[in-house]
């Protein structure tokens, strides 16, 4: 079978790397019996549309940002809360462990799609054209662009500034004409979009770790033989591993490119403590209900060795 795989992002993205990793492993494990075709750039519809298509069984697979699955299966929203994941290792522990397994079960029940692989796209780091940002106080006076995303807007508000929601298609022009001073995105995106042409300062904040799962239509999955199902899941594991490798290699490489293009990269002071406290205290409690209760939150925190929270 030739699986049709919708991919939201363009060539060279982490999503594509996961997709290629999956197709290669699939061909190898099945001895050439199965393969997949990637339809990049959202050619098969917006990321949210592809979830419905896969649920109905008219699309085989899709690679998309996790926040586009949240509307269909709210419990996966736990990975989109600020400062839940503090490192790539945290992300791997959570997604490959029992928590990831439970979320996969949830998406099957809620949305009719099964997560078979995870793309690790990395932290959304902050860039701006005005000044180095090391503390929450440094944010004052900066106009930051964010997507229309409640969690991100709330986070910036917790840090004391009101961000500007702006469509992605207008962002580069917005930064260029200084309608906005800054934005946040993973390193791969900053490089692909050549943001170094219009931005100077990078701050390695870690409030959101971008995770982009590969989902398969549960209906399509159930039509496969037990042997083929095992092959798909195995290929998914290989794709996940390939994604982690891609991120480690790529991020180092990109930081170098950005430095060469005149950007300055800095870390937040005090190991980001102030950012973390403000954001988690203000934002987390608002979303306990939608992710299935505070216990779910604590299960996640315990799994990566952090202290649980109380009401």
């Amino acid at each position: 079978k030739n699986f049709k795989i919708a991919v939201g992002d363009s060539g060279g993205s982490s999503q594509e790397a996961t997709g290629i990793g999956f197709v290669n492993a699939l061909e190898e494990l099945s001895g050439g019996k199965h393969t997949g075709t990637l339809f990049l750039n959202g050619q098969l519809g917006s990321e949210q549309d592809t979830v419905n298509d896969a649920a109905i069984g008219t699309l085989d697979m899709s690679l998309l940002a996790i926040n586009n699955i949240t509307p269909f299966s709210p419990s996966v929203g736990v990975f989109t809360l600020p400062y839940v994941i503090l490192s790539l290792e945290d992300a791997e522990t959570l997604t490959n462990g029992p928590i990831g397994q439970e979320l996969t079960e949830n998406t099957i029940n809620d949305a009719g799609v099964r997560i078979v692989a995870w793309t690790y796209t990395g932290f959304r780091v902050l860039t701006n054209s005005k000044k180095p940002v090391k503390s929450v106080a440094d944010l004052k006076g900066l106009v930051i662009r964010v997507p229309k995303n409640e969690i991100m807007i709330d986070t910036y508000k917790a840090w004391g500034i009101s961000p500007t929601p702006m469509a992605w298609s207008e962002t580069f022009a917005g930064l260029q004409t200084k309608v906005v001073d800054g934005q946040d995105n993973p390193y791969t995106t900053i490089n692909a979009m050549k943001f170094y042409e219009v931005q100077k300062y990078v701050t390695n904040i870690r409030y959101i770790f971008s995770i982009e799962p590969l989902i398969i239509s549960e209906q399509v999955f159930q039509e496969l033989s037990a042997e083929d199902q095992a092959i798909v899941l195995e290929a998914g594991k290989a794709a996940t591993a390939a994604s982690a490798t891609f991120l480690r290699e790529k991020e180092a490489e990109i930081k170098q490119i950005l430095l060469e293009n005149g950007m300055e990269i800095s870390d937040p002071e005090n190991n980001e403590e102030e950012f973390i406290t403000l954001a988690t205290e203000a934002v987390w409690p608002k979303f306990y209900d939608s992710i299935g209760g505070i216990e779910k939150m604590n299960a996640v925190l315990t799994a990566i060795g952090r202290d649980p929270v109380s009401e």
Binding site: N52, A55, I56, D110, G112
Partner: peptide, 14 residues
């Protein structure tokens, strides 16, 4: 068929 049988039950206006 789509509206009554196939739509995701969480799919609401944001």
């Amino acid at each position: 068929d789509f509206i009554f049988n196939k739509m995701n039950r969480f799919q609401s206006s944001q």
